[in-house]
Simulated scan of single mutants.
Amino acid sequence: MNNDKTISVLNDLLNITNDRIAGFAKVADKVWDNYSELRPAYDDMVAESWDMKQDLIDLITAKGGDPDNTTSVSGAFHRAWIDVKNTFTKDKDESTLENVVFGEKAAIDAYDNALESGDLCPESTTLVLDQLHHLKASYAKFETLESIS
């Protein structure tokens, strides 16, 4: 197992996690008037993202790497697109839910790709699988809510 490849994959996931945190900040307080039942799930997702971030940083450091504690270019473009889209969207609540679902799906895809890459050591695989489980659970919550909105 190549430690540099493991660190690189973990840094990619750290960027994705930072994208989630930045994305959540974009949608904060946008739908709570009409979907107050979402607030606890949203707050859990935000707290979970910060925990995931710290776990990735800790593992990257333990592997001898330097955490790349930034967001991705694609995540920045997506957040800019959200701003443009929301400017012209009438139903901002529905659009916000769609953006949360889209972001969670993108994170799940990145985690699946990391696992399929074969570049993770057993310890990293365990952490990534655990984080993927949490991502899928939050995705399922918001996908269900989006479909009934």
Rank of each mutant, 00 (worst) to 15 (best):
M1A: 12
N2L: 05
N2V: 01
N3P: 00
N3H: 03
D4T: 07
K5W: 14
T6I: 11
I7V: 13
V9Y: 14
L10H: 05
L10Y: 09
N11D: 13
L13D: 04
L13A: 08
L13N: 07
L14V: 11
L14I: 10
N15V: 08
T17V: 06
T17F: 03
N18R: 01
D19G: 05
I21C: 02
I21F: 01
A22T: 03
A22G: 02
G23Q: 01
F24V: 00
A25E: 05
V27W: 00
V27I: 12
D29H: 07
V31A: 08
W32E: 11
E37Y: 14
E37R: 13
R39F: 10
R39Q: 11
P40K: 03
D43M: 15
M45E: 15
M45V: 15
M45L: 15
V46C: 06
A47F: 14
A47G: 15
W50P: 01
W50V: 14
D51T: 14
M52L: 04
D58E: 07
D58S: 02
I60L: 02
I60K: 03
T61F: 00
K63A: 09
D66M: 06
D68K: 01
T71D: 01
S74N: 06
G75S: 02
F77C: 00
F77M: 08
H78Y: 11
A80I: 04
W81H: 13
W81P: 12
I82G: 10
I82W: 12
N86F: 07
F88H: 14
T89L: 11
T89Q: 15
K90F: 15
K90C: 06
E94S: 12
E94H: 15
S95M: 10
T96R: 04
L97I: 04
L97H: 03
E98L: 09
N99F: 05
V100W: 00
V100T: 10
G103W: 06
G103T: 02
A107I: 01
I108H: 06
D109C: 03
D109I: 09
Y111N: 10
D112I: 12
D112S: 06
N113G: 11
N113Q: 15
A114Q: 12
A114W: 07
E116I: 02
E116T: 09
E116N: 15
D119N: 11
L120K: 08
T125N: 07
T126N: 11
V128F: 03
Q131Y: 02
L132H: 07
L135F: 08
K136L: 03
A137C: 01
A137E: 14
S138M: 04
A140C: 04
K141H: 13
F142V: 04
T144L: 10
T144Q: 08
L145Y: 10
E146Q: 13
E146T: 03
E146W: 06
S149K: 09
S149F: 11
